[in-house]
Structure formats: structure tokens, C-alpha cells
Design a protein around this nucleic acid. Structure first.
Lengths: 234, 234
DNA sequence: ACAAAAGTGTTGTACGTACACCCATGA
DNA sequence: TCATGGGTGTACGTACAACACTTTTGT
């Protein structure tokens, strides 16, 4: 740290810090029975990129931490509060915005029962697999968030963050299939997840079609994902 | 993004962006034959935390990207330029510094042949396993960097970034042992790394003690680590 | 010749995959 | 009773850990 604070604050040096969130949830296609990964985007009402869709976010406030800012700006723009929130990456290329902005991007998951479909102004949900051209470098950011999601699904129980309290193994398997983009063997999936110790069987069953399926809960003792020495840190 | 640029620039909101780097290399203990993970720290010459050791770093310049800033500040403070550089995490807790600073932290590896032991002023090397109390939250940051290093060693060929061009399998194994903190079976280690396709055997051998050991090179076609859709991005 | 590191072979266990098969329910 | 998804059993292949064994050098 070589320069003084006053130098760093001069307008020529102006670097602003923004916070954005890529927040995923699943939606059943009306026609099909398959799940789709969807995320909310906000239509920009001012330049730059006025009229284009962008990730929900806002400026970092001097009195709040990074994760707090992500939660706050997400709530202000979309009305949502996620079940899982993790830092994704800091984007700071010089030309990613007309003015110099460093964006700390978080990614989040929303449980199916948390989707408040209160149609907020200028917010719309998009299929993550077929996005339009977004503002700034937000297309790249979403691509990276999807990569992290698919990756993390392989070695953690992160997918549970997308389902409500009680669910069948078929529900959970469909979540994995939607994220990974391929079919999984129901028999093998059952054994894997049963042996992982992350699920607690209930006495309840879901009836309605064919043989009833047992409902499961999360084992709250098991973390959704291992973030190492970092807890809810900024 | 709800507030205007002028609001975000008011002094009360002042948030500055710093860049720091945790850079690891290995050193052989003089007495023992084992490797040790070491990193350079810089003694602070001004408040806050004057006199304490801190990670090399500096302020982000408005005209450079994040990774470029990490390389530049690392070179300015220590004279080193790493063989591998990757973003670690953005730290932005409100109370991590007397003034509001968001630090984008990178982590890096240095090859054994890259250690320029030009004794730079106020720079000293420390055993990563037994650090003194560092400035700011830098102890936590190093802990997290070590966790990432150990983690990444398990699923990528990142450890190769710590060795010179040609090396024996025993050299490489010792790197893994130093990072993971446990002994590995030489026979099994050999097969694993041979089957990974990341090494190219040379016709040269290292002689001097007992049976000569074949020297290997990196296969440059294989990336050290998979960073997903992100390349050398900010 | 002997010690010690380089390098090879063999075996057991764990785990993922493929797939045959039985079970329970709605229609 | 039949179709369908729920749930169990089993066999195969790969990957890894453990460890016995052979090879090649310096002393």
C-alpha cells in the first residue's frame, strides 16, 4: 500500500464497488415434466445499457459487508432472499463498464417454496440455458456461476438448497438431472444419497401416482457445501 | 444500481479497493531433508499496523485489471513474478481495516528456480505453518489460501507449478507431501501421476545417490488447474 | 556385499455403473 | 390386470491403498 487515502479518492482514480447476485432456482416446464434452471434478471432503467437485462445488484454501502450488500440489493431489486449465498468472483476488467466498476458477484440458490411470485416491477425470470444478450459482462458471469453450480453439485449436497422441506428421492434426482443436464439411474442415485447421511427419512409418503414415495428431510447437521475456513465471511 | 455516481463518490461513502497476493513456494529445511511451504511477507512502514508483517499488495489502479494489479504490486514489493496466479477471494468486512477497504486477494505459486533471493528491503520469508500475528485479517487470508492449495492439489496438477523444468518423481512426490502434510506411497504415486498424462519422461537421469532417477517434464498441453469458463480474466 | 532409492507386480476394498428384478399403487 | 414409478439385488469395471518384490546404483 503505497499511495495515501486522499490520492486514492481523487476523481481521476474513481473506482466504485458494486455487488451483484446470480440466483438460481428451478421451474417445471408447463408442457414437459422436466425441470429448468431459471434466474431473475432486472431491466435497466438508465444508462449504460438502458433497457437491457442485468443481474440484480447495486452499489456497496460503506457501512455493510459484502454478503450483506448482496442480500440487501437482491431484496431491493427482486424481493427475494436466498436459502444459500456464496461469493462467486470479483470482476474488475477495466473495460467492463464505461466507468471503472469492480463487481463482487455472489451466487445463490432459492428453494422451490421460497419463490415469492410477487411480480416485481422490471423483474423477469429467464431460462439459464437460453439467455438474451445481457448488460455489461453479465453473460459471462452467469456462465461461470452455472459452471460452479454444476461443479459443486458433484461433490456437495448443494442441490438440496433448491427443494422445499420434504421431498421424494425422485424430486431430488430431478434437481440433479436438471443441473447436470443428463439422466441419472434412479437405483444408483438412491443408494448414493442414502449412504451420504444427508437425508432423514420421514414416515410420510407422497401419494397420487402409482406406488407412494417416501418423503425425506435434510439432515441439518450436514452443511450444504464445504467452504473451508470461511464461514459467513466477507 | 440505484444511486448515482456522484453519491457513490462522496467522502462519507469512501470505499477503496486494494489487491494482495498470497504467494507460496517450497524451501528445503537446512537440517532436515523435508520441504516446507513458505511465503513472503512485507513489514509495514506506516499505520495502520506499522511494524507488523502483511501480505504484499497495494491499491488498485483505475487503469489496470485486477490480476494485473496483483502482479504489479507483488513485483513492486517483493520483486517476484509467479508461475501461477489465481483469484482467491474478495475480503470486505466493514471492520477489517480502520478505513473501509475491499481487498481482492490473489494466490500464486513460485517455481523453485524462480526464487530471486535478491534480499528486498522489508521482505522476509515465513513458514506457512507457523506465522506470527499479521496485520489486518491477513492470518485468516493465508489460512484460506493454504486450504485452497491443499484442496486443489487433490484434483489438479497445480503442484507442478512449484518445481523447475525437469524433476524426478521423488521431487514431485515431496512437493505433494509438503503441501498435504503426510507421506505418500512412492509406488502408488508413480502410477497415479504416470497415468494422468501430465508428465513427459525425458532421456536424462539424475544421478548421485543410489539408483539414478528418470527426469520428467511438464506436458504443456495440460492445464495446471481447471478454472472453468474463466481464463486470465479479472 | 550391502544399503537405499528406483521401479514393478499383486491383492483387497470401495465405489460407481449397468441392469435384472420385485413391490405397491392408480386406473 | 396392467402400466408405472418405487425400491432391492447383483455383477462388473475402475481406482486407490497396502505391501511384497526386483533392479540399479554408490560406498
Amino acid at each position: 500500500m503505497t499511495r495515501t487515502a486522499s490520492e486514492a479518492l481523487s476523481p481521476a482514480d474513481a473506482i466504485r464497488v458494486a455487488v451483484s447476485t446470480v440466483i438460481f432456482t428451478l421451474r417445471r416446464l408447463p408442457g414437459s415434466d422436466a425441470f429448468q434452471v431459471v434466474l431473475p434478471l432486472v431491466r435497466r432503467t438508465r444508462d449504460p445499457h438502458e433497457g437491457q437485462w442485468a443481474l440484480p445488484g447495486g452499489w456497496l454501502d460503506a457501512t455493510e459487508g459484502l454478503a450483506a450488500a448482496a442480500s440487501r440489493t437482491l431484496g431491493e431489486t427482486t424481493g427475494l432472499s436466498p436459502s444459500y449465498l456464496e461469493q462467486l468472483y470479483a470482476f474488475g476488467a477495466v473495460d467492463r463498464s464505461p466507468t471503472r466498476v469492480v463487481s463482487i458477484v455472489y451466487w445463490a440458490l432459492l428453494r422451490a417454496d421460497e419463490i415469492t411470485d410477487s411480480t416485481v416491477e422490471n423483474v423477469s425470470w429467464f431460462d439459464a440455458a437460453s439467455l438474451p444478450s445481457l448488460a455489461f459482462d453479465h453473460n459471462e458471469i452467469v456462465e461461470y456461476a452455472l459452471w460452479r453450480l454444476r461443479n459443486k453439485v458433484g461433490y456437495s449436497r448443494i442441490a438440496h438448497g433448491l427443494l422445499a422441506d420434504e421431498f421424494t428421492l425422485a424430486d431430488l434426482r430431478e434437481v440433479y438431472e436438471a443441473i447436470l443436464g443428463r439422466r441419472l439411474d434412479p437405483a444408483n442415485f438412491r443408494r448414493q444419497v442414502e449412504n451420504s447421511g444427508t437425508l432423514i427419512p420421514t414416515d410420510r409418503f407422497r401419494t397420487g401416482s402409482h406406488r407412494p414415495a417416501r418423503l425425506y428431510r435434510y439432515n441439518q447437521d450436514v452443511e450444504l457445501a464445504d467452504r473451508g475456513p470461511l464461514d459467513a465471511r466477507d
